[in-house]
Write a protein that binds this DNA or RNA. Sequence first.
RNA 1: GCCUCUAUAGUUAAAUGGUAUAACACGUCCAUGGUAAGGAUGAAUUCCAAGUUCAAUUCUUGGUGGAGGCACCA
Length: 637
Amino acid sequence: MPNIKLPDGKEINFDKPITGLDIAEKISKTLAKQATVISINDELKDLDHLIKNDSKVKIFTSKDAEGLDTIRHDTAHITAMAVQELFPGTQVTIGPVIENGFYYDFARKEPFTEDDLKRIENRMKEIVDRDVPTKREVWPRDKAISHFKKIGEYYKAEIIESIPKEEDVSIYFHGEWHDLCRGPHLSSTGKIGKFFKLNKVSGAYWRGDSNNEMLQRIYGTSWASQKELDDYLKRIEEAEKRDHRKLGKEMDLFHFREESPGAVFWHEKGWSLFQKLVNYMRAKQKVAGYKEINTPEILDRSLWEKSGHWDKFGEHMYTSETPDEKVFAIKPMNCPGCVQVFNQGLKSYRDLPLKMSEFGKVHRYEPSGALHGLLRVRAFTQDDAHIFCTEDQITQESLTVTNLILEIYKELGFEKVLLKYSDRPEVRVGDDAVWDKAEDALLKAIKETKLEYSINKGEGAFYGPKIEFVLRDAIGRDWQCGTLQVDLNLPDRLGATFVDKDGTKKVPVMIHRALFGSLERFIGILIEHYEGKLPFWISPLQAVIIPISDEFDDYAKKIFKLASQSGINCEIDLKNHNLNYKIREHSLSKVPLLLICGKKEVDSDTITIRQLDSKKQETMKTKDFLKNYSSLNKAPL
RNA sequence: GCCUCUAUAGUUAAAUGGUAUAACACGUCCAUGGUAAGGAUGAAUUCCAAGUUCAAUUCUUGGUGGAGGCACCA
């Protein structure tokens, strides 16, 4: 007879086999009502799963992640049910739970329209109202295959065929409608609630493989209460407000156009922001001992063949043929050029570690569907650097790089950084002994940072292991930016050597690293992180001077001159509009400071400051303003 | 690259098988102002190519760009 152990340590004895629901009822009526799924010896099961033996159980409600996932899973199921009721002949495939919701992939010739989504959603609500009980059956694998083939569900049959031969499969029934599923599920469709929404339809390859046919994927979101659903929809709206493409237009930073898809046309303010970041980084790198170089954008085909890019990366490269019929490639990476700088002249072990940085603009022919504002472009600037060192120096150099990255992210307002470590892939170059050494060195450096890290097995580059730096923005999204890659291959391929202590030539190890990754992408992330309200020191336009009427234009011009001389990026607004109008206009374009001057200020040699998003005004002596604010004009240390 | 959707003034949108309308922005004029839109007025637009049609911005096809996904991100 089962002895049931609860999470709080309490044990209950039953005199006959029982279900999760029985246990919940024993504990409290409320729990019985709210229960969604149960874990039996750490395995998620249906609430009506019969427990015959002594077990450790935990009952989940919609407040638990497990419970909510079950709701989402069930919502995916009734999406499929509704679709098949409305569109007979549509085949179901898979419908997993994802972050904040679920999707379901269908095979159907005609596309689903927006109107169809509405209809499906309404039918789903009807199914919830029908409160159809859930029934689970276990079938032998072969029976399931022939059954699904018979009813024309070929994708399902294929899925079952990929399940090991000896395993039985479970089929969940909601009335006549049934689906292959591992479960668990809620006990009836009525339990799902109506806090869901189908939000988009898109294409998706069967089994995620672009060689396979394209299915139609319906995305949905589902929650335990109306409030949670509303909050979620609100969050999406908030994220849309931060869209850097929208803000970039409003703030007059940049634009894109047809003549060069995926390449940025930087406007004055955007370029100023770009330059500020570059100069900031330059100053940081100078202190850290980097030597900045610059290499050609167009290099002969032969170099790319030697480096291996022609082979491995060719389809992403732009090429150019000159009138003398030579083929050049427009660089997609800076590394070969940098190695050539290293190769010029003889290097000694005393030169190592040699750190060469380059703000190199690279071009990559990205698939058209991948392009996305500043976040995925075809032409971008890397804050690249290559560190030539010995194997023994890898750990130390990696650690130094990591610390620099963390410091810079922090100064730019990103506190939370995660590390992703990737080790050797199946296809790789170099001896395993060297890989061992490089991997150990990187892992050691990671552990010394004491930061949270994850391991991506086999995800390293073919030429060496790597660390990726992921930062979390103001609304909790993760962005991969920085990268550090050990390269055991390229220096050798391009014939890089240094003279070691014993007078022999050795091949150095090279570490590739980028902190922002792409300046363009990083600026996009910065804009979204700050919702366009960039910190004063990095803001491309820091202040607008507004005279209250044209009587005070001269004073405003004087302030403009003084502020500009103090290094504050400012503009003066002498347009024919009233004060309210100008305040609104410049606030919407997110200028951090508005400097207002009228009679009061002229008489007392002061300026009235209005900070963005603050109704408070502060009047101060002009010279104090200049002193205070020009000193804020650098990264907070 | 693939699927779906989409393309109208500088921007955001509206309308129509008989070449288009509004708001904001821009120009001019009036108003000279104290912390998120003062008033008048002017100029400005149907992505490209082919087809159907007496007539296409509207319908069809193709191209190109954009959006959301998928695949890709070495």
